[in-house]
């Protein structure tokens, strides 16, 4: 995954705001990168640009050697379904579906039959310790359990890259540790993990840390 001189600016109340400013970056397969920086520094924008969700104002983003934003929106959606998994701070589970059905969504989008969907989703929920919560809807689960359902959903299509936006931001320290353990485990399996965080302890779990300041990538540490 590679960013080449990527800039992204927004117009806010008639003023142009640079969320990313000439950012270049290379993330190799199997890397675990923490992105840190103050609020408004462009961390989430970087994650969206990497995930093919937000086209940059300038520069290019490459995934497996292909320019992501030269693809059509539907081809990018296809790419996300096959290669990228998103973890959100507020989990973004579909509230009217059970835990099992939430994990089935990516599998349904991939066109798998219902029996296979159920089998894989059940195995993934068991892996994150929620084998006894299959038929619970999100409001019936604790916050930590909801984030674990979201992690099981991310793994459904076996993505190469996991993009996590403040995955422990809404969790208590103990539950946060469990989620970080799961992300580390996914990384050990060979997946690339890019995690935006404010929490220095979470950042410490990554192999390297990128610091963003006013949209610019500062020299790396670790």
């Amino acid at each position: 995954m590679r960013l080449e001189a990527v800039s992204k600016s927004y117009s806010h109340r008639g003023r142009m705001v640079a969320a990313l400013d000439d950012a270049s970056l290379e993330i190799t397969p199997g890397d675990f990168v923490a992105v840190v920086g103050p609020s408004g520094s462009g961390k989430s924008t970087l994650l969206l640009v990497l995930g093919g969700m937000l086209s940059p104002s300038a520069g290019q983003v490459f995934l497996n050697g292909r320019s992501l934003y030269d693809l059509s929106p539907n081809a990018r959606a296809d790419m996300r379904r096959k290669k990228i998994g998103f973890v959100f701070q507020t989990f973004n589970l579909v509230p009217y579906l059970t835990a099992l059905e939430n994990v089935q969504i990516p599998l349904f989008l991939a066109g798998l039959d219902e029996a296979t969907q159920k089998q894989r989703a059940t195995a993934l929920l068991e892996r994150v310790g929620l084998g006894d919560r299959l038929d619970h809807k999100p409001p019936e689960l604790s916050i930590g359990e909801q984030q674990r359902v979201a992690l099981a959903r991310v793994l459904a299509n076996d993505p190469e890259i996991i993009l996590a936006d403040e995955p422990t931001g809404n969790l208590d320290p103990e539950t946060g540790q469990q989620i970080l353990d799961l992300l580390a485990e996914m990384n050990r399996e060979g997946r690339t993990v890019v995690m935006v965080t404010h929490d220095p302890r979470a950042a410490a779990r990554a192999k390297r840390t990128l610091r963003l300041q006013a949209g610019r990538i500062m020299p790396t540490t670790n």
Binding site: G51, M53, P73, N74, A77, D78, R80, R81, K82, F86, F88, N92, V94, I105, P106, L109, A110, R153, N157
Partner: peptide, 16 residues
Amino acid sequence: RREIGTLMALGAGSAV
């Protein structure tokens, strides 16, 4: 719209 955005992030195309 959040649910739609999530589905899109999970790989749903506009046709879905």
